[in-house]
Design a protein around this nucleic acid. Sequence first.
DNA 1: ACCATTTCCATAGCGCCCTATACAACATGC
DNA 2: GCATGTTGTATAGGGCGCTATGGAAATGGT
Lengths: 144, 144
Amino acid sequence: MTEDTQIAPLIQQLARSYAAILQEQLKPLGLTPGQLPALQQLWSQDGKTQAALVAALQVEQATMANTLARMERDGLIERRKAAHDGRIRHIHLTAKARGLEAEAREAVMRAEAAFLAPLRPGQQKRLAEFLVVLAEGEQGSEGS
Amino acid sequence: MTEDTQIAPLIQQLARSYAAILQEQLKPLGLTPGQLPALQQLWSQDGKTQAALVAALQVEQATMANTLARMERDGLIERRKAAHDGRIRHIHLTAKARGLEAEAREAVMRAEAAFLAPLRPGQQKRLAEFLVVLAEGEQGSEGS
DNA sequence: ACCATTTCCATAGCGCCCTATACAACATGC
DNA sequence: GCATGTTGTATAGGGCGCTATGGAAATGGT
């Protein structure tokens, strides 16, 4: 029956499905899914610049600027301009954001677990391998 | 090193990556990725209602209404109200949209092929099986 | 010193997803 | 027959991704 299963649309659907699960887990914390990657970066090292976040997370600069604006509006971060270079703004977590780290980490783990629940651990591992190949093959596939 | 590879974010990234590839393939046709699912439904059977499209494609009703509004604006569809029931609007393709079917089909196949290129066919098949399990497990997991 | 370029960030505008709400048209109960 | 409920769409508003553009601060060449 299902001879051409159309993998790509499935992935898009799963991405939306996971976003919904994660959003539900994050709602009690007052966080949104899009804020998480930036928060994780800043939890590991506070004071990064926007350019550093853009480089670490694979999003466009404008996307990051907008996400940071929402996070500032929500009282999660402050942007302080560097003394020695007026272009650069270091992103600093507020006490509120620092206090959310443990709970957020648990929420992410719950979301990931719920998302992957239909697969057994061994299958999850093989799935991850395939996805990594796809992700690495997609960008800069040319060359060795 | 990579003990918890974080599968879900990978899927989100791949979904964005595929969207970019598909968008590039569709651009010459004047179509956008979000219009495709509705178009495919209508190519297979013209005149479906919005409710039928919502049921077939897994999106919210409001999302479909907005997508259809953009498609109407772009001259791809017409919405005609049913004679016997003033609530219902049958969605009909324009000649322009009908003429794009073959090219769009090829564009989708090219996008899918480019996306999956890093994996060999056998791996693609196993990946598809995993994803189907996830997709089916995610929605309505309760019951038999 | 100055002009051109580069670097870093912000803004405008759009696509597509969501929830919540509004509203018109049909269906039903009494 | 009329109020009540249900059904099919539309609208409002927001998140998060993108491209394109603008602007301010540093840098580099002459």
